[in-house]
Design a protein around this nucleic acid. Structure first.
Length: 235
DNA sequence: GCGACAG
DNA sequence: ATCTTGTCGC
C-alpha cells in the first residue's frame, strides 16, 4: 500500500471508508483537461490464478485519431478481497503501476468503474485521479448506487443517476439495444464534460475506445497474438 | 431486519 | 472479475 494512494490508512474496513470520505472532499468537478487532449489513456483490471494475480492493462491513444500509441499489462499479487464500495483499495496499486510504464503521461484518463457515482463519492476513477493528479472519468457497466429512469433507445440518449438527492452520473445509451453505461466524473472533469468526452470517444461499440481496448487486454481477449484460436467443431 | 452490491 | 458453447435476435 503506497502512502501516496492510501495515505495513513490503518488497514481496516472502517478506516478505508473514513479515508474515502476525506479524499472525496478533495475531488474537483471542474473541467481542467485540455479541450483537445493530445493523449488519452484507458485502464482496466482482470484477474488470473483464480484471483491470486491482479492484471492491470493500460492503453495510450492519440487524442485526435484514437490510434493505439502504447499498451502495457502489469501483473501484481492480489492483496485484498473484493468488497463492494472499496474496489479502489483492491485495484488501484496495479493501475498505478501500469500507468507508470506507459510511454507518456496521458492528458485524460478513462477508468473502467465508477467516478463519483459511489456511496461516499469516491469510486476507483475518482481515487485514481486524486492519486495521480490527472483528469479522470469513470465508465462503468453497472450501477453501484442510485436510481434512474432508463434513457431513450437512440444512441446518445441519457438520464441522470441520482443518489441522496444529487446527480452522481449519467446513464448513457452509447449504442442501440445495449444497456446504458454509467458515466461519472472522476477528478478535474465536470458532470457534463464527462458525458461529452465519452460520447466523442465512441466508435460503434458499447464502450468508448480507451476503455474498450484496455478491457480486451485485461480480459485476455483479442489484440494479443499469444495463441492461435483453437478450431470450434470438426469437419 | 431485508435487499443491493463497480470489478 | 472468473468458470464457459451454443444460441436467439437485430
Amino acid at each position: 500500500m503506497s502512502r501516496s494512494a492510501f495515505g495513513d490508512w490503518d488497514g481496516s474496513i472502517e478506516g478505508a471508508r473514513r479515508l474515502q470520505t476525506q479524499l472525496a472532499a478533495q475531488v474537483r468537478l471542474v473541467d481542467e483537461a485540455p479541450a483537445a487532449p493530445r493523449t488519452i489513456a484507458g485502464l482496466d483490471v482482470g484477474f488470473e490464478d483464480q484471483g491470486a494475480t491482479t492484471r492491470a492493462a493500460a492503453v495510450l491513444l492519440d487524442g485526435t485519431t484514437l490510434q493505439l500509441l502504447d499498451s502495457v499489462v502489469e501483473r501484481v499479487p492480489t492483496a485484498m478481497p473484493y468488497v463492494p464500495g472499496l474496489l479502489s483499495f483492491r485495484e488501484l496499486p496495479a493501475l498505478l503501476a501500469a500507468l507508470q510504464r506507459l510511454a507518456q503521461v496521458p492528458e485524460l484518463v478513462l477508468v473502467d468503474g465508477q467516478g463519483i457515482a459511489h456511496p461516499r463519492r469516491l469510486g476507483i476513477a475518482a481515487h485514481f485521479g486524486l492519486a495521480t493528479g490527472l483528469p479522470t472519468i469513470g465508465v462503468a457497466k453497472k450501477v453501484l448506487c442510485g436510481r434512474f429512469e432508463p434513457p431513450g433507445p437512440q444512441p446518445g440518449a441519457h438520464t441522470p443517476l441520482v443518489h441522496n438527492g444529487e446527480q452522481i452520473a449519467w446513464m448513457l445509451r452509447s449504442k442501440a439495444r445495449c444497456n446504458p453505461l454509467v458515466v461519472s466524473p472522476g477528478h478535474r472533469v465536470s458532470m457534463d464534460g464527462a458525458r461529452e468526452r465519452v460520447m466523442a470517444l465512441l466508435r460503434g461499440y458499447r464502450l468508448p475506445e480507451p476503455t474498450r481496448l484496455a478491457d480486451r487486454l485485461a480480459s485476455r481477449r483479442g489484440a494479443m497474438p499469444e495463441r492461435v484460436p483453437a478450431p470450434t467443431g470438426r469437419f
